[in-house]
Amino acid sequence: MVQARQRRLTAGSRGAFVGRPGKPGRSRRPGHPARPGRLGTPRRRLLLALLLPGLTLYTLFIVYPLVSALQYSLFRWSGTRQSGFAGLANFGDLFTRYPLSEQVWRALEHNVLFFVGTMLVQNTAGLTFAVLLHRSRRGKRFLQTVFTLPHMVSPIVVGYLWSAMLNPQFGVVNATFRAVGLDALAQPWRGDPNLALPVAICVNAWQWIGFPMLLFGAALAGIPEEYHEAARCDGASAWHTFRRVTLPLLTPAIGIVSVLTFVGNFNVLDLIYSLEGSQGNPAGATDVLGLLFYRTAYQNPDANAIGQSSALAVCMFVLIFGTALAASRVFRRMEDRLK
C-alpha cells in the first residue's frame, strides 16, 4: 500500500518533470519535444560531465576487472603471461586436477553448510528478536543498538577477538565453563574439525544478527495492525496469527534477507581468515570458496595459477550472481501473488 503510493509519487514527480519541453538545453526552441541532443550541445556536455566520472570509475575498477576475469579464465598462463588460448581447460583443471578437484567440492559444501546454518541460527533468531522487540516498548532503542553493535566491528577483529576467547587454555569461554563446574563443555572449539565450522557460523551470526533483526523490524512495522486485530477477533491464537498472517506478509523481507545472506556467505573470507587462518584450519574443516579462491590466486605453486583462479572466479560469479538473480525473481513472484 505504502509502496504503491510512494511509487506513484516518484513516478508522478518524474513524469511531470522530465518530459517538460525546453528545459535544460537553452538553445532549444520552447515547446520543442525532448530528444537526445547532438554532441556538443550544452545539455549533452552537461550530462557527460555529470555521468562520466562515476561511469568511468565504476566501469574501470569494477565492471572491467570482472569481464577480464572471464577472458583470463580462457587462457593458459605461465606466471604472469598468457601463453595461448586454453578453451575450457582451466575449468577442467578445477574439477580434475588434485588437490583442487577435492578442495573445490569441500569448500562448496562448507559454503552451503555455512549458508544453511546462518539461515537457521542467525536469521531465525533475528526474526524472533524483531517480533519480540516489535511488541515491547521498554528499552527497544537500546536493545536494537546493542544487537547491531557487533555489525560495526571488522570481521578481522571479530575473528581475532573470538579466537582469543575460544582459546582452550586461556580463553574466557572455557574458563567460564570450568568456573561453574561444567568442565565437560570446555572444548577445543576452534581445533576440533567437527566443531570448527558450527563455531564459525555462530561467531558470524553474533556479528550479523542485527541486520536481519532491523530488516524484519522495518517490515513488521509496515504491517497494518488491523490484520492482527481481525485474526484475533476470529479467535486465532498468537502462534496462528503469526504463522498465517504475519509470516506470509513478511515474504518480501524474508526474500531480501535470504538473498543478502546468500551473497554474504558465499563471499565470506575475512572472518575465517582471522579465526582459522588462510588454510581454513583445522585440516581444511573451515575452508570456503572465498579462501580457496585467494589461495589459488596467490598461494598456488602451479604456473597456471591465474588461469585456474580465474576459472574459479567465473564459476563463483555464476553461482553467486545467478542464484541471487534467480532467487530475487522467485521472491518477487511470491510477493506479487500476495497482493
Binding site: Y58, Y64, S68, G290
Partner: peptide, 23 residues
C-alpha cells in the same frame, strides 16, 4: 544506464581481484 549502475549492487566484486591487481 540506470540498470547498469543498479547491477553493481549484487556484483561479487572481490572476484575481479586478479585483473584489478594487473590494472
Amino acid at each position: 544506464m540506470s540498470a547498469y549502475f543498479l547491477a553493481g549492487l549484487m556484483l561479487p566484486i572481490r572476484l575481479g581481484i586478479v585483473p584489478v591487481f594487473y590494472l
